[in-house]
Design a protein around this nucleic acid. Structure first.
Lengths: 204, 204
DNA sequence: GTATCAATTGAACGATGTCTAATAAATCAA
DNA sequence: TTGATTTATTAGACATCGTTCAATTGATAC
């Protein structure tokens, strides 16, 4: 065949990305296959390689799209949160974090299941998306700190991100269920509240 | 061939487990292959299936062994910690947590990269090992709490475990490096210290 | 209308997990 | 000791995977 006019290159890329993410959402990372994505979009496997270069390239692009979706979900939740209550905004962000991961378990999990080969450098645009996502949290953490301690926000935000990630990860992979924990989100919120409270008062 | 007397069944199981874990440590979960393990032990792939039933069975057994190794490392670190300083013991445990993960990145990462099919139940002995590992931490958290709050230890321990896991995970997968964090262990210790401190005083 | 070019294809390759019939070795019977 | 039975082990077949590439097809330019 060779349908050069069915889709432009950007259209084709978008189509593959959409179907790829949908396939990932359905079967999960372990069962994900580039060939299956090719079937879904009705192009041959070779065309997938023309557009994304490799399996890793495709997975990276799908994960990049997931990062964008996640960022948008967080931003939307923050837009709906009260401007004058930093604590409430932070909690809203964490709730949105959990909500996105829960509602999109497979694509969210794939963000961490997939790793490119040890030598391969992370594409700049992917790193930028990750930084952007982090930036949202840094801003909210900074707003929750007294002005004199705002410079500690980036480090604290990174740490709280890791803490929340751990809770979310254990919630989704069944560790918490196994250990009898039935309110992972509540636990994460409690830890974050303690850390923010600790950063209000003491050290110079 | 058919070397029925080269190894007894337990010996063969131990041999496969040892070489399997070594292979996993060398190539990582993504490149791990049961066939390669068969080559390493000098038996055919079929024999591997006789002993462990499936790829999943083999991975589960290897991860079980890793859990045991990890538990032993934590227990050893706790044995070397001062008996009368709960805070120091907790910090020693967290340090041991990081040390094990760092020194055994591939096998530690495989604990979370591998997941059995959604319907398959977790084997009881695997769940027991996980619970045992958690139990170590629960005991130390309990010791760090005032007697009146000891009943909160299990829930707090689960949460702190998740928090530490998140920091360790981000440290090993490069997220922290990307975000400019150069002391993941320090951050984890700080969060745990804050949580323990918060549990000393306030609520009834 | 023909030649050039680029996109698309599908067959081929090696490797993987999984299964099964054939084979070898060990055990037991006579 | 010999023969029959059981059991461990093997090698091959199968479907699928990521990857590559020569051939083909459609569009474009002359």
């Amino acid at each position: 065949m060779g349908r050069r006019s069915d889709h432009t290159r950007p259209q084709l890329s978008e189509l593959i990305l959409r179907e790829g993410q949908a396939h990932l959402a359905q079967v999960g990372f372990a069962a994900f296959s580039a060939r299956e994505v090719a079937k879904r979009v009705g192009y041959s496997i070779g065309t997938l390689y023309n557009v994304f270069g490799s399996y890793d390239g495709l997975m990276l692009a799908i994960n990049g799209r997931t990062l964008t979706d996640w960022h948008d979900a967080l931003a939307a939740a923050l837009q709906a949160a009260p401007l004058d209550d930093p604590q409430a905004r932070l909690h809203a962000a964490i709730r949105a974090y959990f909500d996105f991961a829960t509602a999109n378990r497979h694509v969210w999990t794939a963000l961490y299941d997939f790793r490119l080969p040890p030598d391969a450098p992370m594409p700049a645009d992917y790193a930028a998306k990750l930084a952007g996502l982090t930036g949202l949290v840094v801003a909210e953490v900074a707003a929750a700190l007294p002005p004199a301690r705002r410079d500690a926000a980036p480090a604290l935000a990174r740490s709280l991100l890791a803490c929340v990630h751990g809770h979310c990860f254990f919630a989704l992979n069944g560790t918490f269920a196994l250990l009898g924990e039935d309110d992972p989100l509540g636990a994460a919120l409690a830890r974050v509240a303690e850390a923010i409270a600790a950063a209000q008062g003491p050290a110079a």
